[in-house]
Simulated scan of single mutants.
Amino acid sequence: MARRRKGRDISGWLVVDKPAGLTSNAVVNKVRWALDAKKAGHAGTLDPEATGTLAVALGEATKTVPFVTDALKAYDFTVTLGAATNTDDAEGEVIATSDLRPSDDEIKEALHAFVGDISQVPPQFSAVKIDGERAYKRARDGEEMEIAARPLFVESLLLLDRPDADHIRLEMVCGKGGYVRSIARDLGRALGCLGHVHHLRRTWSGPFEAAKGISFAQIEEMARTPELEQFLLPLELGLADLPEVRATAEGAARLRHGNPGMVIAQGLDYGEDCWASFEGQPVAVGSYRGGELHPSRVFNL
């Protein structure tokens, strides 16, 4: 018999402003414990030394994680010019250096090549799988791997500041699967000066913003108290990029059992993804087909 998972059935989102030095999973585990939640997950990993938006989904909100993961997200990061590292960030060993320092205009011109639909090779120290094993595990053993390039959509990449000759501050808005460390590495190569990430912060991810998030210290201070629950955001925020339709009473009953149900909608195309609510509660998400929602996920609230 499978062991029953302990904890409360609590659903919603807790947006954490992740500090440096913690893994994303460590933050999720702390949130799960602090709220005594039965189920929790996050909508997009941040490197341990990165800070900023980590949206933690609880309970039924975990079913909306893919929609947040697919949404655009923004990063504010600093690149150190003149040195490449084996991890493409400041935590790694320097493997090459350069005395060349490009001008601001040269940097702005080079950024154009990284906007739009681009191909990107993940860092050697990354969580991508190579023959079933995480790349970072092989990299730690000194192995150099051929990692296939992956598509990435970059909406914008801007030069925000140049505090000194060796550092530039950039802002990138991109889609799913982007490695900021790869952008820093490839930009440094394109400029001929080499480069790696010095500091990285995710300022927002889909509908969630670091500026409105709760700190890790606050989570520890308010753990296992009602005060922490006041920071919970509704499940449906994870569906912010999808249109909402209204289920009829009969439709809601059918949807809750995983069957197509009648909904009231305007301006939707056949086959368009959307989510249905009934009496202010999310019921299901799925595909709109001529007056009915065909559910792919059902919310048990």
Rank of each mutant, 00 (worst) to 15 (best):
Ala165Lys: 15
Leu194Ala: 02
Thr78Glu: 10
Leu232Tyr: 09
Lys30Pro: 01
Thr23Asp: 06
Glu209Ile: 04
Val173Gln: 08
Ala113Phe: 13
Glu236Trp: 08
Arg4Pro: 02
Gly286Asp: 06
Gln281Thr: 12
Gly251Gln: 05
Asp161Thr: 11
Lys137Phe: 02
Ile214Thr: 11
Ile214Ser: 04
Gly82Cys: 06
Gly175Tyr: 11
Glu146Trp: 04
Glu229Thr: 11
Val27Ala: 00
Arg297Phe: 06
Val79Ala: 04
Trp13Asp: 02
Ala139Arg: 01
Arg256Lys: 12
Val65Asp: 00
Arg134Gly: 01
Glu146Gly: 03
His199Lys: 12
Leu170Gly: 01
Gly132Cys: 08
Pro19Tyr: 01
Pro243Ile: 11
Gly188Lys: 02
Gly178Ile: 05
Gln230Tyr: 13
Asn86Phe: 04
Leu233Glu: 13
Glu155Ile: 08
Val180Tyr: 01
Glu144Thr: 13
Leu152Phe: 11
Cys174Ala: 09
Arg289His: 14
Ala253Trp: 12
Pro102Tyr: 05
Met262Arg: 15
Thr45Ile: 09
Arg181Val: 09
Arg189Glu: 11
His199Arg: 15
Gly21Ile: 10
Ala74His: 15
Gly92Lys: 03
Pro260Arg: 05
Pro123Gln: 06
Ala190Tyr: 03
Leu46Val: 08
Ser24Asp: 11
Leu100Val: 11
Val15His: 00
Val298Tyr: 07
Gln218Thr: 14
Gly251Lys: 02
Ser126Leu: 06
Gly188Ile: 05
Thr62Ile: 07
Gly175Met: 09
Trp275His: 09
Ala135Asp: 02
Gly21Asp: 09
Glu49Gln: 12
Leu194Glu: 00
Phe153His: 14
Ala190Pro: 02
His257Val: 12
Leu232Glu: 06
Gly175Lys: 11
Tyr179Ile: 05
Arg254Phe: 10
Ala210Thr: 07
Leu233Trp: 07
Lys18Tyr: 09
Ile118Lys: 08
Ser215Gly: 10
Met262Asp: 14
Tyr270Ile: 09
Leu170Asn: 00
Glu144Ile: 15
Ala223Lys: 10
Val94Gly: 04
Asp161Gln: 13
